[in-house]
């Protein structure tokens, strides 16, 4: 079966995250007021890994929150009710730099929902976006600030990020849907 291709090995994934961590550090010199906010499910462990990496080389442990965007989705009516996850952000976001973390950036609709959700939670000075994979096909004017890897895809392909914390292993694979085989 040739329809499954690995596009990031565990080692490549680690290096991509280290690079993102450094870029976040550079962009926000001093890392004051920065808070990492992961979008469930896989954005949350990614945000935690980035925070741990930054702690390694800067000695600063950034706060990490998680932001469930289910109630902000614009496709609830089309796709039906989805289980609501948990939102847990211990800090007031007002006047903070919020770095949203997600695994894959695709249409941009998830990020749009996250921006709405953050606006309801406070008024940050700045919102930045970090993603492990940018696969293109944006439907909204949204661009990531930090990208692990740009992957050209067709709409019929699936990009799947597997993480130790959830899936037991680290890798990113791309799969063709059955119709294309």
């Amino acid at each position: 079966m040739n329809n499954r291709k690995q596009i990031l090995t565990p080692d490549e994934m680690r290096r991509a995250l280290v690079r993102i961590a450094h870029e976040i550090d550079e962009r926000n010199g001093g890392l004051q007021n920065v808070i990492l906010v992961g979008i469930p499910r896989r954005g949350v462990p990614l945000a935690e890994r980035i925070a741990a990496t930054i702690a390694d080389f800067e000695g600063v442990l950034l706060p990490v929150g998680q932001l469930d965007i289910t109630l902000y989705r614009d496709d609830l009516r089309r796709r039906g009710m989805a289980e609501v996850g948990k939102t847990s952000i211990q800090h007031d976001l007002t006047a903070k730099v919020v770095v949203l973390v997600d695994d894959v950036l695709y249409t941009g609709r998830t990020v749009r929902a996250a921006l709405d959700a953050i606006a309801d939670l406070g008024r940050p000075d700045c919102i930045q976006l970090a993603v492990l994979i940018d696969r293109g096909h944006r439907e909204l004017p949204i661009r990531a600030d930090f990208v692990g890897k740009n992957v050209p895809t067709s709409r019929s392909e699936h990009v799947m990020v597997h993480l130790r914390e959830i899936d037991g292993e680290d890798e990113v694979v791309i799969e063709r849907t059955k119709a294309e085989q």
Binding site: D68, T70, L71, Y72, R73, L76, R77, E83, V84, G85, K86, T87, S88, D116, A117, D120, L121, G122
Partner: peptide
């Protein structure tokens, strides 16, 4: 159990300053 878990998420929404989400807009 699922309803109680969803309730927990809704309770978090009610604890916010802006106690409103757009889930059932329209």
């Amino acid at each position: 159990e699922e309803i109680l878990v969803t309730t927990d998420s809704m309770k978090e929404v009610l604890s916010r300053e802006i106690k409103q989400v757009p889930a059932l807009r329209g």
